[in-house]
Structure formats: structure tokens, C-alpha cells
Design a protein around this nucleic acid. Structure first.
Lengths: 155, 155
DNA sequence: GTATCTGCAAATGGTTTGCACGCTA
DNA sequence: TAGCGTGCAAACCATTTGCAGATAC
């Protein structure tokens, strides 16, 4: 909580430093992005913000997310067949476990990727500036809910 | 060439085995997917197909791609800010080097991912069924074209 | 001969944009 | 009070879908 709170203060400070205004709607979006571990979609954020500020529009949510993306303070996880999900807690590339059933996304911490990134950069001649690693599968809950020997696959 | 050709024969055989018909349009799409290393978009495929069959429609290209995706014979690389790109040569997950400048995509072969996948599956309790790894960066050509000490980043 | 495939055009759905008004700094 | 931010509605655009006619088998 204090960790998330400091992330919120961090975001607020960076916006201020660039001369951006802090409206109630913007603050609400910021705090959700700073605190949520659920990798919410724009719709998710919109629904939550409306609890406190019923007049908020989806367009404003998108505009705030776009601003933070441009500042490099939010990581966008885009999916071609679904809406994008956002990570405002750790805007640095890291692996995600994505449940193909319930669409839950959880972070996975490992440092092996930075090694791999450097190795591939050296061997390939690319100037690597980032990466994206998703592991697709069934989360423990969804494994439990599905019939015993089922054979799930990504569609 | 013979390698690509056998992949084409492979695809043709699998479609036949499932009772699907082989129209000229479908054959044209199949051969592009079987042969191209460029990870073409639907539009790319459409443009190429039109060279041989000017009457072909984009909808048909999409329908053929969708069919092959459902059969697990084509890997879709979706990007939230751009059209999807397709890999019909190696429909098994493998890392891709994506140039953020010219949008070129090249395959990268390594077996470290299957190890990592298994390790994370064990530690997380997820039943991992696949993965996606993109390395984002500047390809050698684009590094050359850009001003010396530039500081590129993903937008 | 007939079920599948095609082309066209319209629908879809997440995201973006234009504009007039409102509110932060 | 000067602009930036907001809400609304329309625009965007890749992809999907419905349907009538064409065609592979």
C-alpha cells in the first residue's frame, strides 16, 4: 500500500514536472494504475473511476493512459483479439503469465531475460531497446474448474 | 525452396484431409504463407495474391488465414497498434526480432525458451501451453540510416 | 448436384479525434 | 484568465460477418 502510494506520488510528481494539470478524473486513473496488480483494461479502469466520478468518460481514460504511455510510465500489453491491458506499477519489460481461459495476467520476476536480450543483441546486430514475453497457459484456478484430462489450447 | 515447397505440400495435404476445397485463391494464399520469411500482413498477402488473381478479395485472404490459424498451421503475431503478421513456415512459438523503425520481423532460433517455459510452469503452477517473445529494437539497416548517436525508443 | 467458397458491402469493436465548454493553475 | 482537460459523438481501421452467386469435388 505504501509502496503503491509512493508510486502514485511518483506519477503525480512526474506529471506536475511536465506542466500537466491534475484533475480529479486524472487522479483517479493514476491511482488505479499505480495500485492495481490486475493489469486492468481501459474499460476496467473506466468502470472503477465511475464509482467515484460518475461523469468521467471513456475518452478521458484513454487520453490519460496515452499521456502516461508517451511518458514511459505505463506498460501497454496489447492483444490482437482483445483490449489492451496496462501495467502502471512496473513500466519496465517483464514476463507475464496470461491465462487463456479467464484472461488473468500476473507478473513473473526473473532476470534471465536481460541476459538473453544482451546475448541476442550481440549475435544479431540489432540494437535491442525492449522486449515482450508472455507465457500463455491455464492458471491453477482454471485447471481446477476444467474437466480432468482436458486438452486446452490457444485458439 | 524445396523446403518451402514441402511446407506447401504439407499445408495442402492437411486441408484436403479435413475436407476443405482448394481454390486458386486459397492456393495462392497458402503458397505465400508457406514460402515467405517476411511475416507478411493480411494486406501484404492480399497485394501479392492480386498479382496472380486480380479478382481476389481481402475477405477471402482473411478467411483462409483464419482457417489455418484454427488448424494451428499459422502463427499470428498480433500488434495492438498495427495489423497482425503471420508465420506459416514455423507455426511453433519462437522468438522474433521486431524492428521498431521499419517493422521488419525476423525469426531467432534458440532453445532456451522451452527450458524457461518448463521452469516457470513448475514454479508458478500454471499449465503453460505456449509463449510469445518479441525483442524490440533497431535492425542493422535502420541503425545505419539514423543519425549517429541517436537514442531510439519504442513509442 | 450440392455443400463450400468467393466477393461485396455492411457491421463490429477497441481506440482516437474534433470541437465547444469547463475548470486548473 | 489563459489554455489545458473533459465529455460527447463521430471517425478510424483492421478484421469479421451475411448473403447471393460461383465453383470444386
Amino acid at each position: 500500500m505504501s509502496e503503491s502510494n509512493s508510486r502514485l506520488q511518483d506519477l503525480v510528481g512526474r506529471l506536475r514536472a511536465q506542466g500537466h494539470r491534475l484533475t480529479p478524473q486524472r487522479m483517479a486513473v493514476l491511482s488505479i494504475l499505480a495500485e492495481s496488480r490486475a493489469h486492468p483494461s481501459a474499460q476496467d479502469i473506466y468502470q472503477q473511476v465511475k464509482n467515484d466520478f460518475p461523469m468521467t468518460s471513456l475518452a478521458t481514460v484513454y487520453k490519460t493512459i496515452t499521456l502516461l504511455k508517451e511518458m514511459g510510465e505505463v506498460l501497454e500489453l496489447g492483444f490482437s483479439d482483445d483490449s489492451s491491458r496496462y501495467d502502471g506499477r512496473q513500466p519496465i519489460p517483464h514476463p507475464h503469465l496470461v491465462c487463456v481461459q479467464c484472461k488473468t495476467i500476473v507478473d513473473w520476476d526473473t532476470d534471465i531475460l536481460s541476459e538473453l536480450e544482451q546475448q541476442i543483441a550481440k549475435e544479431s546486430g540489432y540494437q535491442v531497446v525492449g522486449h515482450r514475453l508472455d507465457l500463455l497457459g491455464l492458471c491453477p484456478d482454471c485447471q481446477r474448474d476444467l474437466p480432468g484430462g482436458s486438452n486446452p489450447h490457444v485458439c
